[in-house]
Design a protein around this nucleic acid. Structure first.
Length: 819
RNA sequence: GGGCCGGUCGUCCAGCCUGGUUAGGACGCCGCCUUUACGAGGCGGAGGUCGCAGGUUCAAGUCCUGCCCGGCCCA
């Protein structure tokens, strides 16, 4: 038989949070449970909820998930989490962008071989094994940071399935005449021995020399300044500005190239800057991009000067066989000896460098695969203008890039570890035999085709080229959506958000866009979410060589994920570069402790709370609820705009400085007491805590989950619970106004106690507050709150002026006290 | 040379679009407070010609023009 005491006791509504908690252990616990419970699974069959699809950037598995990855992943994870709480069916996939030269180089080094030493499929296998070990490391980091990924979607761009889709898109683009093979000037890295795209060329200034040399013309010598005399044998014209009085009469005449003696035409070219050098320039095939433009415009002949390894061809005469730098030296020496160098001086010049190895790039003509992109520029601009950019001004980056492009996209690369071009050529007539879709995936270097060419021949030679790795990654939106196999892939397409670092807008965002327009005549994504670069705490770009580098495992093992996530959210405006600062992470950590303790206190005061009982809320309770609702409104508006910084600020400021500092202090006495005043405080606490942890849930998913599940006894994750709706019905402007005054009175009197060197808890024998009639009425409404919070034995509220001190924000209110 | 972004206490970052009390926050610094959620906390203090110069306006950190400095991208 139960005793009277126990029979009166109800089951506690809430579980109280423990005093001590190991945040790191707690985080890993939830990461495991989320995965086991499939909390973040996308429902492919759901026809009711709206879809929100994230075009997760597949990281290159370098084995180093750095703070930049952390920033980037936190941004779109917060977006995904917010949208999920807003009722969206969120598709948040994760892939790994495996192909690429760095792996080839690493494998060559590790195995002590060159890629050409073994068959391509064997080398490929080595690369696959190499990269796989890093995927594990990267995946651990992505899980550890608390990304709400649906891991059933995981993929690798090196998988046959993925390559099949890439090759299929290649075939489809070919059919649409959007892919072609052509002879065209391209950027060429002599060291990597491969074509590279514009986007892979980095620019730098180098100290060089500029030589002034004479060209013989019917009107005597014309001096030309050039940095690259080695290109003289490939000189095909002299260009002068048509308005340049010095040379105008020479247009249409011939000039003789020094040392090599070929005759070249003198042409009018408006691109020539009459003020640069001597005002006359030589056009060579190809010294630089300006040459490419001029040669095309004036239909000049092309002289192939260098081969794929940067060695000079026969046309260079006695210099043939030399490396280009060596040739440059010899030509300069010979020019000097022959007295052809009239002047030479130092010049800071722009050079294009290979993004991988920093080797100066050359421009060569070669047969390569291209995708038509220039013809789509108008559509790209139109689409860039139509979609949403976070932040808005980033739109211009894509527009500038697309507008400035000169060439189509060079797709082919002369490498091994990448998606092969699915093509063979008839040995006899040379006709292209493309793979058929049912033959995919295929590596022509390994698999020979059994077919008969139109010419009757049955022998084929493989295309040895592979594709730019951006050709792999610029299909992510479609492949994430389920293209081409899932019949309803268009439900997930275009992607709702394409996240990107500002540095790869010109590559990833651009290629995705142009590819989607070519293939589907539609945008690939509806919005772009940009993150800036991460700087070290010394204000410079974070890098290992500068010594300002911070590795994520170091951060995770000290502070877990929720604290650095707060840094990522609040470290700076979306899209801008932000410094990594340990102080920001530590601040996040301290916020978590504060949140934890506040919720623990709330839980303890709610143990005997009965949610079914409703009482009329007191003034201060209405006040805090109003503050909360306004915070919900602000947090919702900012989250909608991907303004994570202000969303964090709104939530953290409310929790720490409004709820903890003011409300809890003011409500404490009631919570320790009895009756309706206590019940009102309890029902308020119950509501506030639930709402406020939800505001933090997308930012700090672990701690909010722990609090939610413990305190609210929920079997369902906070992350699929509804986001707080702004409830205007709970906003009480009058209560806020009066509450502000009462809180100000408490706060200022408390401060005064502090100034006098006594604790808040110390008893005040007597206090008098002086106020005008209206304010006196307001203050009387908070009489008990003021008296209890400040431990005043005798409180008097008096109409009129007086008191030793004034309230800071209400100069008409004065007070004095006796301790 | 062009485009974009930035220049705000010692440091980092908000505020600028939509002009309006005393320009906020964090870190750091200094001082005070053992307070039954939290001392890994609370309270307070010092610290700012809002890059420079003009202009618009009753009013400019905010809008306009020019310039200087820094970053990124491009030529």
């Amino acid at each position: 038989m139960p005793s009277a005491e126990t029979s009166n006791r109800r089951e506690p509504t809430m579980n109280v949070l423990p005093r001590k908690i190991d945040f790191l252990e707690m985080e890993e616990k939830w990461q495991q449970i989320w995965e086991e419970d499939g909390v973040y699974r996308y429902d492919w069959d759901d026809e009711t909820r709206p879809v929100f699809s994230v075009d997760t950037p597949p990281p290159y598995p370098s084995g180093d998930f750095h703070m930049g990855n952390m920033l980037n992943h936190t941004y779109f994870d917060m977006r995904a989490r917010y949208k999920r709480m807003r009722g969206y069916n969120v598709l948040f996939p994760q892939g790994w962008d495996c192909h690429g030269l760095p792996t080839e180089v690493a494998v060559e080094k590790a195995k002590g071989i060159r890629k050409s030493d073994v068959p391509p499929d064997v080398f490929r296998k080595m690369c696959e094994e190499w990269i796989e070990q890093y995927i594990g490391v990267m995946k651990t980091a992505v899980i550890r940071m608390g990304a709400s990924i649906d891991w059933t979607t995981e993929y690798r761009t090196m998988e046959p399935e993925y390559m099949r889709k890439i090759q299929l898109s290649f075939l489809q683009l070919y059919e649409k005449d959007m892919i072609y093979k052509g002879e065209h000037p391209i950027n060429w890295c002599p060291r990597c021995e491969t074509a590279i795209a514009d986007a892979e060329v980095e620019h730098d200034t180098k100290q060089g020399r500029i030589y002034t040399i004479p060209f013989e013309t019917p009107d005597g010598e014309v001096l030309i300044a050039t940095t690259r005399p080695v290109y003289l044998p490939a000189c095909v014209a002299m260009g002068v500005h048509p308005d340049d009085e010095r040379y105008r009469h020479l247009i249409g005449e011939k000039a003789k190239v020094p040392l090599f003696n070929q005759e070249i035409p003198i042409i009018a070219n408006v691109e020539v800057d009459p003020n640069f050098g001597t005002g006359a320039m030589m056009i060579c095939t190809y010294g630089d991009k300006a040459d490419v433009v001029a040669v095309a415009r004036y239909k000049l002949p092309v002289v192939k000067l260098i081969d794929g390894t940067g060695v000079l061809h026969d046309v260079a005469g006695k210099y043939a066989g030399m490396q280009i730098q060596e040739g440059q030296k010899s030509v300069v020496n010979d020019l000097r000896e022959a007295g052809f160098i009239k002047e030479e001086k130092e010049l800071e010049q722009e050079v294009g460098l290979c993004w991988r190895c920093d080797t100066p790039i050359e421009i060569v003509t070669a047969k390569q695969w291209f995708m038509r992109t220039i013809s789509l520029t108008d559509k790209v601009l139109e689409t860039a203008n139509a979609i949403t950019w976070y932040p808005d001004w980033m739109r211009q980056r894509l527009i500038n890039w697309a507008t400035g492009l000169d060439w189509d996209w060079v797709l082919s690369r002369q490498r091994v570890f990448a998606t092969p071009v699915p093509a063979w050529y008839c040995k006899k007539c040379g006709k292209i035999r493309l793979a058929k879709s049912e033959e995919l995936p295929v590596d022509p270097r390994v698999t020979m085709i059994n077919d008969t060419c139109e010419c009757g021949d049955t022998e084929f030679i493989p295309d040895n080229d592979v594709m730019d790795t951006w050709f792999d990654s610029s299909m992510t939106c479609a492949i994430h959506a389920g293209w081409p196999d899932k019949p309803n892939w268009r439900r997930q397409y275009p992607a709702s958000v394409h996240p990107s670092g500002q540095d790869i807008i010109r590559t990833w965002a651009y290629y995705l866009m142009v590819r989607s327009l070519a293939l589907f005549d539609e945008t690939a994504y509806d919005s772009v979410l940009i993150n800036g670069m991460v700087f070290g705490d010394d204000g410079r770009m974070m890098s290992k060589s500068l010594g300002n580098y911070v590795a994520t495992p170091e951060v995770f093992s000290k502070y877990g994920a929720d604290a650095p996530r707060q840094w990522a959210a609040a470290g700076g405006s979306t899209g801008t570069d932000i410094p990594f600062r340990w102080e920001d992470v530590e601040y996040g950590w301290r916020f978590q402790r504060k949140l934890w303790n506040a919720c623990r206190f709330a839980g303890m005061r709610l143990e005997d709370f009965d949610p079914s009982e409703n009482v009329e809320p007191t003034l201060i309770d209405k006040w805090i609820v109003t503050k909360l609702e306004k915070t919900v409104k602000r947090a919702t508006e900012t989250m909608e705009e991907c303004d994570f910084m202000n969303a964090s600020e709104a939530a953290r400021n409310f929790i720490w400085h409004v709820f903890c500092d003011h409300y809890l202090e003011a409500a404490k006495t009631r919570l320790y007491g009895e009756g309706d005043a206590k019940k009102s405080a309890q029902q308020t606490l119950y509501y506030i805590v639930k709402q406020m942890i939800k505001l933090m849930a997308p930012i700090t998913p672990h701690i909010t989950e722990e609090i939610w599940r413990t305190m609210y006894n929920s079997d369902v994750s906070i992350h699929i619970s509804p986001w707080p709706e702004y409830n205007e019905g709970l906003v009480d402007e009058e209560a806020e106004k009066i509450g502000d005054l009462i809180i100000a009175a408490i706060s200022d009197i408390r401060r005064e106690k502090n100034r006098k060197g006594v604790s808040l808890n110390a008893l005040v024998k007597e206090a008098k507050i002086y106020a005008d009639p209206e304010q006196a009425v307001f203050l009387r409404m908070g009489f008990q709150d003021i008296k209890d919070t400040l431990k005043i034995e005798a409180l008097e509220i008096i109409e009129g002026e007086g008191g030793e001190s004034k309230l800071e924000d209400y100069p008409s209110v004065g007070f004095s006290m006796v301790i």
